[in-house]
Write a protein that binds this DNA or RNA. Structure first.
Ligand SMILES: [Zn+2]
Ligand SMILES: [Zn+2]
Ligand SMILES: [Zn+2]
Ligand SMILES: [Zn+2]
Lengths: 149, 149
DNA sequence: ATACAAAATCTTATGTTATAACGCCGCATA
DNA sequence: TATGCGGCGTTATAACATAAGATTTTGTAT
């Protein structure tokens, strides 16, 4: 258990949006109004946000969207590595490591819901012989420094 | 990424049941018929099993149980560390490390659904300063040796 | 410009997972 | 016998997610 000694600056929603547009461009995918709006809502949320909360926040500007609308956008965005799903919360967060393709590791405060994203080191011990890892879910739940006080 | 070199024997459902009863006794909790039956079903399943599949398998011997019945039993069992919830599958597995209180790490084959449980080493890098980890979710998805062939 | 194909979206319906709330029963304790 | 509590049944509903088909938008070729 090693406390972090690096700098981990957080990007602003605006920066994240710019990067998202670039990545989308590079891959030749369309960053539509809907996708942009969903991404912005995720990026602006300061804790993981749920699909049905996104639905609510899309209204009324985007009419009365139904679940498939927001799930499609989230699938698109997570396919590009722009957002991550937090499995144990059924919620979504904008990737702060704008590179795509990294293994995300989360530290989530159970009091204030704040989430810190890290790029997991790939030193995984004890992998079963011959097992090829395709995707990893690594989420740590606990109490952050602020909330411990 | 280090391939496992240890022996990891698997306990039989019967062994798991015996251990579960002991742990329950030690803690002064009641291992009721229902809890025993749910635990046995989980232990006998050779891949993570879902709550509603458990419900089906409880019938008709246990009448027509409703969701709260099985969720209560699962909460009880996981509270004692006898079963683990696999977050990204919404499914449950009997703990093979009968000690309780360990950090579970799973390697799950996406083809055959086989699951290997390990006890995660606690060498977590880059923990945010002052963050106290209470619970960790570590799940690796991929293809197992058998299915790669 | 027009036609076409593919991508994106909308809509309806349904499937899946999980919990709230309330009541009853059986057992332990005083 | 009263009292309390753990365990479980039951009803209802909340929360999360997807299937399938119709429709619109968009880029591309003619
Ligand atoms: Zn990320
Ligand atoms: Zn906090
Ligand atoms: Zn375990
Ligand atoms: Zn396999």
């Amino acid at each position: 258990m090693t406390t972090c000694k690096h700098e981990h600056e957080h990007k602003t929603p605006e920066q994240l949006l710019t990067i998202a547009q670039q990545i989308c461009d590079q891959r030749g995918r369309r960053f539509t109004k809907l996708r942009e709006h969903v991404f912005t809502l995720v990026a602006k949320s300061n804790s993981p946000i749920k699909a049905y909360d996104l639905l609510d926040q899309l209204r009324p500007e985007f009419g009365s969207p139904k679940p498939p609308t927001v799930y499609r956008a989230l699938d698109f965005l997570s396919g590009l590595g722009l957002v991550h799903r937090v499995e144990a919360l059924n919620a979504y967060i904008a990737c702060d490591h704008s590179l795509g393709g990294h293994i995300a590791e989360f530290f989530i405060c159970e009091k204030c819901e704040n989430l810190e994203e890290r790029s997991a080191n790939d030193h995984i011990d004890c992998v079963p012989e011959g097992f090829e890892i395709r995707r990893s879910v690594i989420e740590h739940y606990g109490i952050c420094k602020n909330c411990a006080a």
